[in-house]
Simulated assay, not measured.
Amino acid sequence: MRICVIGSGIAGLTTAFALCDHPDAELTVYEQDIHFGGRADVGPGGEHCPRFFMDDYRHLLRILGMIKGPDGRTVHESLRRVRRFAHTESTGWVEISHLYRALAKEVPLREKLKSLWAWRPSPLLAEKHFRGRGDNRYGSARNYSVMSLARMAANLFRAKTAFVLPGATDEYLVDPWVAHLRERRVTLTADRRVSRIEPSGGTVRVHTRAGAEEFDAVVVTAFVPDMVALLDASRIDHAVSEAGHTHCVAFTVDLDTREPVLREPGPVMYSRDGINILVQPEAGRCVVLCTLSPRTDEEYVLEKVRRHLDLRHPVRRVRTRPNQRPGEAILAGDYLRRDRILRRPAPTVYFAGSAIHNSYPIDSAEGAARTGLAAAALIRRDFGLRTGHEGSVHGA
Rank of each mutant, 00 (worst) to 15 (best):
D382I: 13
S354L: 10
R307Y: 12
R258A: 10
E198P: 08
H207C: 08
I275A: 07
G211H: 09
D382N: 15
D237Y: 09
I379T: 01
R84A: 14
V174G: 00
G45W: 01
R337F: 07
V253K: 00
R317C: 09
T208Y: 01
D135N: 03
D170W: 01
L278R: 03
K160E: 11
H87N: 11
L262N: 03
T169D: 06
H247T: 15
I96K: 06
M147A: 14
L311I: 04
L262Y: 02
I63Y: 03
T91I: 15
N276W: 12
I34V: 12
R184F: 13
P176A: 04
A212M: 13
R185N: 14
D339K: 08
E328A: 04
L188R: 08
R370K: 05
F53S: 03
I63N: 02
I277R: 01
A217Y: 05
H313G: 09
D382F: 11
V253I: 04
T296K: 12
T91C: 12
V75M: 08
R182V: 04
R312W: 06
R317Y: 06
K160V: 08
S97V: 05
R285G: 04
S293G: 15
N143D: 13
M54C: 13
D382W: 10
C20Q: 06
V186T: 09
L116Y: 14
A159N: 08
P326T: 06
P267Y: 09
M54Y: 14
P326Q: 04
I197M: 02
F157G: 14
W117K: 12
G12H: 00
V220E: 00
